[in-house]
Design a protein around this nucleic acid. Structure first.
Lengths: 162, 162
DNA sequence: CTATTGCGGACATTTAGCATCCGGATTATA
DNA sequence: TATAATCCGGATGCTAAATGTCCGCAATAG
């Protein structure tokens, strides 16, 4: 049960985009640089976010990525879904239908209890992720950071957006 | 975000053990045979369950595995923890502490917002798994299975427990 | 003593994640 | 129109983890 690093990378990248004025974006290179991450790999992940409809891409010089919707309408689940897909972590392979005691006619119309318990647990997990928006994250991060930090970010952004 | 097959295998095995009279167990071979699973690999997983305190092992002829506690006191989470460990799926690598805008003095005493959001989601997931006991599973499985199925299981068990 | 069974380690195979690079397409700007 | 910046998708290689087997050792019932 491990989540890929891509989720962490893109979540932080999106939090940064959410702190920008609406409609403004940054190229993948800058997003990687901000957290000192491998640029080529970050670019791959951003492409996945774009395919998933979380961000919009703008090609060509001066282009980059920006949020596809207001930050209040993008949840952490949207990011997980774009990077890792919507497949449940628990994959039921219906082993109850195998073995020496299976009865020929269907006992399997009813769902597998174990499958459904894990399914419900995962729905609870997703529900919590859906309840947290990028706006929530960005607001808290800004609120908790020191004035020095905020100043450093502002300077860096001005250089990148110039 | 994938769970290992071992969790599915052992969850079904434990559900079978939970349906047995208290104190009665089965060898790993039988547990594998019941769901037509690879015996050697199932044995590995059962050893992990034993290390995790979910089942007790009895060595030697006539031995095998039995639940370490009443089925009402064993949750699906106990099984996940024994097989996959208690590490969170989301691993925060604190990338917020990297990059051109980090301020020298600690902005990091406060927890990472993204980390804590994923942490809470995962707690919700675990809480649901903790709320489902093997007794719950076993009861439902038995209740929903046909008389033919129940009869087949009884016959098979009598052979294995002889 | 022997057959059965669990235990742990070594090992091989397969799959998934991590990471890079390249050629092609798009677009702003000089 | 030429150039540089940028995204896109595919190909590729490396590493780590999951999957699966096997063996020798220890314990135990008969």
């Amino acid at each position: 049960m491990k989540m890929t690093e891509g989720v962490e990378w893109t979540a932080h990248a999106c939090a940064l985009l959410a702190a920008l004025p609406p409609g403004i974006g940054l190229p993948a290179n800058a997003l990687a640089e901000f957290h000192a991450l491998a640029p080529a790999y970050m670019a791959k992940h951003m492409q996945a976010l774009a395919r998933g409809g979380v961000v919009e891409s703008v090609r060509g010089a001066g282009g980059g990525y920006r949020l596809a919707r207001p930050a209040t309408d993008i949840s952490l689940w949207d990011i997980v879904e774009a990077i890792e897909g919507a497949e449940p972590a628990f994959r039921c392979s219906e082993i109850r239908q195998q073995g020496p005691c299976v009865t020929p006619n269907g006992d399997f119309r009813k769902p597998c209890e174990i499958h459904s318990a894990f399914g419900k647990a995962e729905m609870a997990w997703r529900a919590h992720l859906k309840s947290v928006s990028l706006a929530d994250i960005a607001t808290e991060v800004t609120r908790k950071s020191s004035p020095q930090k905020r100043a450093a970010v502002t300077v860096w952004l001005q250089e990148k957006l110039a």
